[in-house]
Lab assay of single mutants.
Amino acid sequence: MSSSSWLLLSLVAVTAAQSTIEEQAKTFLDKFNHEAEDLFYQSSLASWNYNTNITEENVQNMNNAGDKWSAFLKEQSTLAQMYPLQEIQNLTVKLQLQALQQNGSSVLSEDKSKRLNTILNTMSTIYSTGKVCNPDNPQECLLLEPGLNEIMANSLDYNERLWAWESWRSEVGKQLRPLYEEYVVLKNEMARANHYEDYGDYWRGDYEVNGVDGYDYSRGQLIEDVEHTFEEIKPLYEHLHAYVRAKLMNAYPSYISPIGCLPAHLLGDMWGRFWTNLYSLTVPFGQKPNIDVTDAMVDQAWDAQRIFKEAEKFFVSVGLPNMTQGFWENSMLTDPGNVQKAVCHPTAWDLGKGDFRILMCTKVTMDDFLTAHHEMGHIQYDMAYAAQPFLLRNGANEGFHEAVGEIMSLSAATPKHLKSIGLLSPDFQEDNETEINFLLKQALTIVGTLPFTYMLEKWRWMVFKGEIPKDQWMKKWWEMKREIVGVVEPVPHDETYCDPASLFHVSNDYSF
C-alpha cells in the first residue's frame, strides 16, 4: 500500500475517532442539560424564597438545595474531563465542556465548601437584617432599607448623617470582619485549585478570550484597560469633585475643607457610591423646571407596579418582548415591611425554565424608576439567551450584562422620554440651562461612581493577591479612598471594622 493511502486511512481513522468522541460528548451534555435544568431551578427557587423571606427554615432549605446542586456539578465536572477539548471540533459542544470542566467552588473539600456557603449566607443575613438603634431610645431601631437609606438620601443634618453612617459600619461591618477574612482565604483556595493566581484573578477570567475568531484578550489586559480608563475620566471627575465640594461648603460651611477631601457621609447614600441625591444641593440653574421627576410621580399617584409597567412599555417600544406572566405573578416589587424580612437590594433573577423575576423594595422616586429599567434590562438579556444550552446561558461577561441594564436606564432618564410619559409637563422646553442641569444630574450618577468602583475593586484585587496584610485592611482602604476618590472618613476606623463589606456587593460576593 502506498504512503499516500496510509495517510488517507490515518486521517479517516482520526476523523472517525473525533466524531465518536464528539457524539459521546453531545450525548453526555444532553443528559447533563436535562438534569441540570431541574436541580438548578430547585436551588434557585430555594434561594429566592430565602431572599424574599429570611427565616431559619428557608436558609436551611437553601443550603440543602445548594448542596445538592454543588454535588451534582462536582460529579458532572469530573465526568466532563473525559472529553479532551482538543478533539472537539463543534464550537458549541467545546464551549459547554469548557464551562463544565471549570470546577468553581466544587473543587473544595465537602467541609470547606459547606463552610464557604455558611459564611456567604451568614454575611448576607447580617447585611439584610442588621439594625441600628437610637442610643437615646433603644426601642427605636432602623434597618438599612428603608430607614438608614432614607436618612442618607434626604437628611441635611450633618450629625444625623454621621450617626447613620458610623452606626451601620459599627453594627454590621464589625460583625462581618471575621467572616470576610475567612471568605478571602477560602475563595483564594478555590481559585488556585482552578489554576488561577487568586480570587481576583478568577474574577478577571470572566473577561478572558482565547482564540475565538482570531481574537484574544487576557486577564492582564483587563487590568491595563481599567487603569487606562480611570486615567481618562480622572480630569472630568476632579472637576466634578471640586464643583460638588464648593456646593457642599454652602450646605455644611464649617465641615468642608476648600482644598481637601469630601467627608464620606455627605455624598448622597450610605457609601458615597452614587452622588445622585446631591442634585438638589448642586443644581446649576435651580429656577428651571426640576428634571428630577420624583415629585411628579408622587403627585400622579405612581406605585411600584406603574413604575415597572412603564419600564416594560419602554422596552417594547424598542422592539423587545413583554415580561412574562410569571414575572408579574412572582416578582417581589415592594418591601414586605413587618410581614417578613427580605433582601431589599435590587436584583434580577433568571431562575431557569423561563422563570424570570425582579426583587426590589421599590420606592416612588426617579432613582428607583431608573433602577427598574436597569434591572429589567438584565431580564431582557436573560430572556434573549434563554434558548441557548444551559451552560451557555450567561452574558458575554459581567460588565456587558451591567452595560445592557445601564444603557436602558440612561435612555429612560432623558427629558424627551420623561416628557413623553407625562412626568415633565407638555410645555417643558429644553435649552442650554436645562441641558446643563440634566448633564450634571447624569454626571453625579455616572462620573461620580467610577472612581468609587475602581478603587473598591483595586482594593479587593490587592487583598486577594495578598498585597495588603490583614492587619492593614482598613488603613489601606482609607488611604486609597483619600488618594483615588478624594473622600475622607469622618471618624477614624481601626482594624475591627470592615467598611468594604458594608456594601451589598462585597458582603454578597459580587464583583463589579
Rank of each mutant, 00 (worst) to 15 (best):
S19P: 02
S19H: 06
S19T: 04
S19G: 13
S19N: 09
T20P: 11
T20N: 09
T20H: 12
T20K: 08
I21W: 13
I21M: 13
I21A: 11
I21C: 12
E22I: 08
E22T: 01
E22R: 13
E22F: 02
E23A: 05
E23Y: 00
Q24D: 15
Q24M: 14
A25H: 14
A25I: 02
A25P: 14
A25G: 04
K26P: 13
F28A: 15
F28H: 15
L29F: 01
L29G: 13
L29A: 13
L29T: 14
L29N: 13
D30I: 00
D30R: 14
D30M: 11
D30T: 01
D30A: 13
K31Q: 15
K31C: 15
K31N: 14
N33T: 05
N33F: 14
N33S: 02
N33M: 09
H34L: 15
H34P: 00
H34I: 13
H34K: 15
H34E: 14
E35D: 01
E35C: 00
E35Y: 13
E37V: 13
E37S: 13
E37W: 14
E37A: 13
E37G: 14
E37M: 12
E37P: 12
D38T: 15
F40E: 05
F40Q: 05
F40G: 10
F40L: 06
Y41Q: 13
Y41A: 15
Y41K: 15
Y41F: 15
Q42K: 02
Q42H: 01
Q42E: 15
L45C: 14
L45D: 14
L45E: 13
A46E: 11
A46L: 12
A46D: 12
A46M: 09
A46V: 12
W48P: 09
W48Y: 05
N49P: 11
N49I: 11
N49C: 00
N49S: 01
N49M: 02
Y50S: 10
Y50R: 11
Y50Q: 12
N51K: 09
N51F: 02
N51V: 10
I54K: 10
I54Q: 10
I54G: 11
I54A: 09
I54N: 11
I54R: 11
I54W: 11
E56H: 02
E56C: 04
E56G: 07
E57H: 02
E57G: 07
V59S: 06
V59R: 05
V59W: 05
V59P: 14
V59Q: 09
V59I: 10
Q60N: 06
Q60R: 07
Q60K: 03
Q60H: 08
Q60W: 09
Q60F: 06
N61F: 06
N61H: 05
N61K: 06
N61Y: 07
N61G: 07
N61Q: 04
N61T: 05
M62F: 09
M62V: 11
M62D: 12
M62I: 11
N63P: 13
N63R: 05
N63E: 11
N64Q: 07
N64V: 06
N64P: 13
N64A: 04
N64Y: 09
A65F: 03
A65Q: 03
A65S: 12
A65H: 05
A65R: 00
D67I: 06
D67Q: 01
D67C: 02
K68W: 12
K68A: 11
K68D: 13
W69Q: 05
W69F: 09
W69D: 11
W69I: 00
W69T: 00
A71C: 02
A71I: 04
A71N: 02
A71H: 01
F72A: 11
F72R: 07
F72L: 09
F72E: 13
L73E: 11
K74S: 05
E75V: 00
E75I: 00
E75C: 00
E75K: 01
E75P: 02
Q76E: 05
Q76V: 00
Q76S: 04
Q76F: 00
Q76I: 00
Q76T: 00
L79W: 00
L79H: 09
L79Q: 12
L79K: 10
L79S: 07
L79C: 13
M82T: 14
M82Q: 13
M82L: 03
M82S: 14
M82K: 11
M82A: 14
Y83K: 15
Y83M: 13
Y83A: 09
P84L: 12
P84K: 11
P84Q: 11
P84Y: 11
Q89C: 02
Q89R: 04
Q89M: 05
Q89N: 01
Q89V: 01
Q89E: 01
Q89H: 02
N90W: 00
N90H: 00
N90G: 00
N90L: 00
N90A: 00
L91V: 03
L91N: 00
T92V: 00
T92N: 00
T92G: 00
T92K: 02
T92M: 00
T92S: 02
V93T: 07
V93G: 13
L95V: 07
L95D: 03
L95E: 05
Q96N: 11
Q96T: 12
Q96S: 11
Q98P: 13
Q98H: 05
Q98F: 02
Q98K: 05
Q98I: 01
Q102P: 05
Q102A: 07
Q102D: 01
